[in-house]
Design a protein around this nucleic acid. Structure first.
Lengths: 128, 128
DNA sequence: TGCGCAATTGACTTTTACGTAAGAATTTTT
DNA sequence: AAAAATTCTTACGTAAAAGTCAATTGCGCA
């Protein structure tokens, strides 16, 4: 695994602009190290960006994505903190399950649309 | 099934404002009938709103949602049109499958987070 | 050492998806 | 009928998530 990535390498890989990655840094989602003023992205940063993109595809806001990635990296703390995290994890899971249900329903309706189209095509073939 | 719903009935059911429903009408997502100037929403409109909310939860933009609901109601046309719709349906399905994959991955990572927390809690209990 | 390219910061702009407020018209309630 | 509530249109405002532009800065290299 490579030690560092430049910002443009990652913009190409993920199909985003440099502005976007810098914006995510401003927002506290990633924290690449610097050589002088130039950002150097490590594999960990790259993986974080992957998680951010996933969150974006699922329609989570930056704030929500921040919450999620913070859960990933929360250091082992005391019991109360642990329980709080477990609770927040369960909340997010509930949201994700809702989204999954929404997807299944939408897929089912699209199946219906396709079937109607194919039936219609069959009719046209008979009629002609 | 009721014949008509008022705008506030639906705002309460779906947890949105009247502004939002009027906005969706401006955007061509719904087209309630009128009695005078007042909007009357039929069951079909209500169902459309349900689909819109699903789209929103999945992070689709208004433009994307418009595309989807238009596929639902496209009237039976000629063969070329049918094939075009089938293609667009397949595109949307691909997007939805990607989202579903994103959900599975996120759920798996959240499971991991929870497990770490529970392990940590167990450790704390032993140590005390 | 001078050139060009990539990277940086900062400021301003844009788009999306509504929120909010004003004022008039209708409808409903008392 | 008068008061209260709902709805309407129109218009301006705003937060989030970047896009765009300008003015540097620094690195690789011929």
């Amino acid at each position: 695994m490579r030690e560092f990535y430049t910002i443009t390498e990652l913009t190409r890989e993920f199909g985003v602009s440099t502005r976007t990655l810098r914006f995510y840094e401003d927002e506290g989602l990633i924290a690449p190290v610097r050589r002088g003023r130039t950002r150097l992205f490590r594999p960990g940063d790259r993986h974080l960006i992957k998680q951010i993109m996933r969150g974006k595809r699922l329609g989570f806001s930056i704030a929500e994505i921040r919450e999620i990635v913070q859960m990933y990296k929360e250091p082992p703390g005391e019991a109360g903190q642990m329980r709080a995290i477990v609770d927040r994890v369960e909340e997010k899971r509930a949201e994700l399950r809702q989204k999954r249900k929404d997807i299944e329903e939408t897929l089912a309706e699209l199946d219906q649309v396709e079937e109607n189209c194919l039936n219609r095509l069959a009719e046209l073939r008979v009629a002609s």
